[in-house]
Design a protein around this nucleic acid. Structure first.
Lengths: 105, 105
DNA sequence: TATTATTTATTCTATAAATTAGAAAAAACT
DNA sequence: AGTTTTTTCTAATTTATAGAATAAATAATA
């Protein structure tokens, strides 16, 4: 019963969606643009590190590009365990959200 | 941009589902039975307190029932803010999970 | 062409908040 | 008194939050 946190879920899903362009800055930007979520810098990199440590993501150093500047990008990819973790969340969501009774205030 | 945690979501949804029978023990039991999630005692009561403090739940003392024993139950109910918080999560889930590309390992 | 400025990006670290675990206390019935 | 059901309380661990510091590359300027 290992259940990932909300932040971990959102980051894993973003890595999934960004495919070969998932690194700190684009992940943060996607969460802002797509979902309106304002994460601080640490709010992205701290969980990214943790997800790699836990084996749900792998990371690899990007090559320098003919763009302005910056440290070389660290790209992320889902591992099979990362996909599994997301699948468990999806199942959990289905169980918890389906067939709710009428709300009773 | 106030986004509830996974535990908060699960507890709010359980209170919703249990209607007039939502108190610490039944909430814990439902999470175990329906979703296989093993929360410790504190894992339920600590966030319940917080959700009341935040105004997403209200609580009221139950009357003694002709059952064996125990402190009198504290029942919980969703507030409108609690419902709103869940709706925001639902929207977020839709945004994040819909139309994911093929997974690219 | 050096030198400085600007841009893009990560690393690092401290504080706050949430989770986890379970012992202790409370209250009722047997 | 003993047993059962339930909550209260609190300490330790893990996550989240925030942003300064650092790094590395190009662009601008003297």
């Amino acid at each position: 019963m290992d259940i990932i946190t909300r932040t971990e879920e959102l980051i894993l899903l973003t890595v999934w969606r960004l495919r070969d362009n998932a690194y700190g800055i684009t992940i943060r930007k996607h969460l802002k643009d797509a979902a309106g979520l304002d994460y601080s810098i640490g709010g992205i990199y701290v969980p990214l590190d943790r997800l790699v440590r836990k084996g749900l993501l792998t990371s690899y150093q990007g090559n320098p590009t003919p763009q302005r500047g910056g440290m070389s990008k660290r790209f992320y990819k889902l591992t099979p365990d990362g996909i599994d973790a997301l699948e468990r969340i999806r199942t959990l969501n289905t169980i918890m959200w389906d067939n709710l009774p009428e709300p009773s205030f």
